[in-house]
Computed example of a mutant assay.
Amino acid sequence: MWHLMMSQLAPRNQSGAYVRPSSQFRNFISTAVDNPYQPAIGRYKLYVGLGCPWAHRTLVVRALKQLEDAIAITIVSPSPTEGGWVLNQPELGCRSLADLYELAQPGYSGRCTVPVLWDTETNTIVNNESAEIIVMLNSELNQFAQQPALDLYPSDLQKKIDAWNEKTYDAVNNGVYRCGFAQTQAAYQEACEELFGALDEIDAALETSRYLCGDRVTLADVRLFTTLFRFDVVYYGLFKCNQRRIQDYKNLGPYLRDLYQLPGVADTCNLEAVKQDYYGNLFPLNPGGIIPLGPDITNLWEPHGRDRLSNIR
């Protein structure tokens, strides 16, 4: 029974390891002459779930760049009874994210995930891959940002950012899911060892570097942050990632506090939504649906001391 429920929640390979399906909408906003999705203020919006770490990335970039006036958001919530995301208020005749995907592509049969970058002019999905959406928010809508000088993907650091992203995606961002959704002991153990091996490596790198790529916060930090924020709250217990907490690390703990305290970032972090989404909706992992009362995350406002590593004052 458990394997049947898990197969519906998380696709697996023959060894019992979780395999994340690829995103299917991969168009881009750009100024290319033949591109139908041209940069514009107010034309695009984001559909996000506050508990989802992938959607959270887009909210963090939107906040750091101060793009709130340029791109609206619609919050969707997970419904265990409907088995997917639902809109808090109907839009465009849609009451669920599945309806929205059907509107964008009639007959669509894939996964209906957040975030969704939506074009209000043509009523379709531009992109549903968070890694690509945050690049667009950083560059293609920069002319509408109130913080245009903040470049989270600068050309001189792109190779280093890409290298960190490749390292952290499989082992950490998706690694926690590979632990939590593993359906054999061997698959879980392999994922868990890779996860904490990567965290140890990152912690060592942060000994002499304020952020992953030096003195400047980049998309590599954004992508790691949304996993770290959820780690002690959810992944440590529910996903069995319990060798160490992030706050137990010498450098990762202060690094998390540093990112959390950047202007606007804390406002994108909704602890109760995170707990509700994971503990309340992942029935095979938490059949009782009981939501834990803790933890207290006020420690994220404690001094981080990371500015001593930065040449920026």
Rank of each mutant, 00 (worst) to 15 (best):
A149K: 08
A266V: 05
T268R: 10
L262C: 11
A220C: 04
P154D: 02
Y101A: 02
N127Y: 06
Y44N: 12
R95V: 01
L219F: 01
T268P: 02
K275Y: 05
Y249P: 01
L150I: 14
I134Q: 08
L157F: 04
L256R: 14
A104D: 07
L252E: 00
P36I: 10
S130W: 01
Y101T: 03
N251E: 08
I29D: 04
N27H: 13
L285M: 03
E302N: 11
I202F: 07
I29Y: 14
V234M: 09
E272L: 10
L256P: 05
S79N: 03
K275Q: 00
L97F: 14
D151S: 12
C94I: 12
A55N: 09
I71L: 12
I202K: 05
L224H: 13
A40Q: 07
P80I: 13
N242P: 12
P115Q: 08
F196S: 08
Y236P: 05
Y188D: 12
A171Y: 04
C213G: 01
R26T: 01
V274C: 10
C179N: 00
G305R: 08
N88D: 14
R244C: 04
G237S: 10
P292D: 03
A40D: 02
A98F: 06
V217R: 00
Y101V: 12
E194V: 14
Q158M: 08
R12C: 02
Y235V: 09
A98E: 12
L309F: 01
E194R: 14
M6G: 06
F196R: 02
I290G: 03
D248M: 11
Y249I: 02
D258E: 04
G49K: 11
F239N: 04
G197A: 07
N88G: 15
P284H: 05
A17Y: 06
K240S: 04
G288I: 14
Q8M: 10
P263W: 00
N138G: 05
Q24P: 08
D170F: 14
D34M: 04
P287F: 04
E82S: 12
Q185K: 15
D203F: 13
I71W: 12
E140M: 04
P263I: 01
Q261A: 09
P39Q: 02
G16E: 10
Y188Q: 01
A40M: 12
T81C: 05
W164A: 01
I73W: 02
L4I: 15
L97N: 09
P39L: 09
V48S: 13
V76Q: 06
P36Q: 09
V265H: 00
G93W: 10
T31D: 13
S109D: 14
N165R: 15
A187V: 00
L67M: 08
T120A: 11
S30M: 10
L137E: 08
R178T: 02
E302A: 14
